Amino acid sequence: MALLPLLVLLGAAASPGGYANPAPHALRNFFWVVSEPGPGLPEFIAVGYVDGQLTVHYDSETRSAEPRVAWAERNLDAQYWDGQTQVAQGWEALFQANLDTLRGRYNQSGGFHTLQVKYGCELRDDGTIGGFEQYAYDGGDFLSFDTKTHTWVAAAREAEITQHRWNEDKAYLQQETAYLEQECIEWLQKYLTYGKETLQRREPPRVQVSDRPSRDGLTTLSCWVHGFYPRSVAVMWLRKGVAVPQETNRGDVLPSGDGTYQTRATIEIDRSRETDYTCCVEHPSLAEDLRVPWAPKSNVMLIVGVVIGVLVLVAAIAGAVVFLRKKNSGYKAAAAHEGSASSGSDQGSNTCVKA
């Protein structure tokens, strides 16, 4: 298969005890064709991501592969982009024909239908590599390449014809394996060099823990992890320091719009039984896992209430002391004034009353 960087499918769920995306670096390609194009939806679209960063875009309306990131435009010449355009145009014609074939297999004469493929490769933390290629029809699994057996596997009965035909072509199987395990990896390494400043940077995650009432008197704890790069991350709730993966609900890892990623993990608890919960985050930028404990609101409010109560009490006592001092001073001054008046002196009257 010729190289065409396309769309990375984001949002894989985190696996218990591991990163949501175990590969720190990945080249993921995606393109699709639709039976009924419309405004804003070309008949054929091809886009590509390296480590979640958009690098190229092609569609049947522009008919041109265009760079979408500065480092790709700066390091790849016009010959490269012309080649990518030719490859995309070839895939466009092939996919349009394949979509018509599949509509016939599914006995569909009209309506909105899609044919999609995702393929690419990744460099993992342990130094190993991996490749993948998957086809989908109308959003359902159709056909995939097994990189262990180097054969195609059908996920639907309608895909068995294609499966047998492609598996019988030994030259094609060798070409597919060579691309996923060699050529794709070589290009991924080139891209990582071209975009080193952004693709190989490390930004540690920021973590915020909160809670809210849930059903039946339970409480939902939420751990929002954001501002991190690269995308690889693992988020887990701990109870008394022990991971509870079966009870942790992990959300997708999504782009934040500023070049970083975010995700969220929640857990539903009975706060009347246990309150010792901690959000644990693992990320390549961290030397060790980051742990942020949950502080029950009731305890926090109690502490705040006690502090406020003490401050109010101190203020009241201080106010009372000042009041009593002023009152005593005023009484003594009044008594002295009355004593002066009874002695017949004019000094007090001349000072306070003016003609």
Rank of each mutant, 00 (worst) to 15 (best):
M1K: 03
L3A: 03
L9V: 14
A12D: 09
A13K: 12
A13R: 13
G17V: 11
A20P: 08
P22E: 11
L27D: 13
F30K: 05
W32H: 11
W32Y: 10
V33P: 04
E43C: 10
A46T: 11
G48D: 07
V50M: 01
G52S: 11
V56E: 08
D59W: 01
T62Q: 12
S64C: 00
A65Y: 06
E66R: 10
E66D: 08
P67Y: 01
A70R: 08
A72K: 01
A72P: 01
R74M: 12
Q79E: 12
Y80I: 12
W81F: 15
D82N: 11
Q84S: 01
E92K: 09
E92S: 10
L94N: 07
Q96G: 13
A97T: 15
D100L: 07
N107E: 14
Q108V: 14
H113M: 04
L115N: 06
K118C: 10
K118D: 15
G120L: 13
L123W: 00
R124G: 08
D126Y: 08
G127H: 08
D138Y: 07
D141I: 05
D141S: 10
F142M: 06
K148N: 15
A156K: 11
R157G: 03
R157I: 09
I161Y: 06
R165Y: 08
Y172G: 01
Y179W: 12
Y179S: 04
I185W: 02
L188H: 03
Q189L: 05
K190Q: 14
G195T: 12
E197T: 14
T198H: 04
L199S: 13
R201E: 12
R201H: 03
E203F: 04
Q208S: 13
S214A: 15
R215Q: 12
D216Y: 05
G217T: 11
L218I: 00
V225Y: 02
G227C: 02
G227E: 09
F228G: 11
R231K: 01
V235P: 06
G241C: 08
P245D: 05
P245M: 01
G251I: 11
G251Q: 05
D258L: 05
G259L: 12
T263P: 09
S272V: 00
E274V: 12
T278G: 11
V281P: 06
V281T: 13
H283K: 03
S285A: 15
L286G: 05
D289Q: 15
P293M: 06
W294Y: 14
A295I: 14
N299L: 13
V300P: 00
V306I: 15
V312P: 00
L313N: 02
A318E: 05
A318K: 03
A320I: 09
V322Q: 07
L324V: 15
K326D: 09
K327A: 08
S329Q: 13
G339E: 10
S343A: 06
D346V: 00
D346S: 13
N350A: 09
V353A: 08
